[in-house]
Amino acid sequence: MAGTLGSGVLMRVRVLVRPKAGILDPQGVAVEQALPALGFSGVTDVRIGRLIELEVDDASQVEEMCRKLLANPLVEDYEVQLLGEASGTAA
């Protein structure tokens, strides 16, 4: 059921969450150190974040979702990408 604020059309949204610049990312370091062992040289600054995809009937709320839950703004940056209408619409 569509929310009262929504348009009735579901939007597909992608949220990219990254460790803030300057904050050590131990997972990225591990991957960076593993790649040369496989013969991939010249790789630096590997950073690992999170990709969250969701369908919403009010895309204007996503920014607040990010601040309150999807990211921790103290240590993570986030980027919201609107991917367009979802394949199905809100019933």
Binding site: I23, L24, P26, Q27, V29, A30, N72, L74, V75
Partner: peptide, 16 residues
């Protein structure tokens, strides 16, 4: 920390 009752955040150990 997540609730904002304490400052800061806890991140993955550097020793992984």
């Amino acid at each position: 920390c997540e609730a904002g009752l304490l400052p800061g955040a806890l991140l993955q150990n550097t020793n992984r």
